[in-house]
């Protein structure tokens, strides 16, 4: 059983979480009307063996969305962060550059 170190709640069993998938894809700007861009975002995913950056939600806990780096072959968890802090950090970096 995978155990995730939720930044809010601490180490918890995977049964408390829901899985979504690839966290490297970014939702296109809502003003984009090109179907190809949206199809890529919704449907196209890599299925790597090894390092994978992915979304989990702590549905039975704090309900935070998390970004987890997990090895798909060994289930080793390398990091587990709040999605909103990761994105806020990205936004700050984008604004300052």
């Amino acid at each position: 059983m995978i155990r995730l170190d939720c930044p809010v709640c601490g180490h918890r069993d995977e049964t408390e979480f829901a899985y979504l998938g690839d966290a490297t894809v970014r939702r296109p700007d809502p003003s984009i009307t090109d179907p190809g861009t949206w199809a890529d975002f919704v449907f196209l995913r890599d299925n790597p063996r090894g390092a994978h950056c992915e979304y989990w939600q702590h549905v039975m806990g704090c309900r935070e969305w998390l970004i987890v780096n997990r090895n798909t072959a060994t289930h080793q968890i390398d990091s587990c962060q709040l999605a909103r802090s990761v994105f806020a950090g990205e936004a700050t970096m984008a604004a300052s550059s």
């Binding site: 966290a23 970014r26 935070e64 806020a88």
Partner: peptide, 18 residues
């Protein structure tokens, strides 16, 4: 109910954080 809640929370956490 649960599906919709998670859907909204996901949007807010990952793209509508502003």
């Amino acid at each position: 109910a649960g599906r919709v809640m998670s859907h909204i929370e996901h949007l807010l956490a990952t793209s509508l954080y502003d």
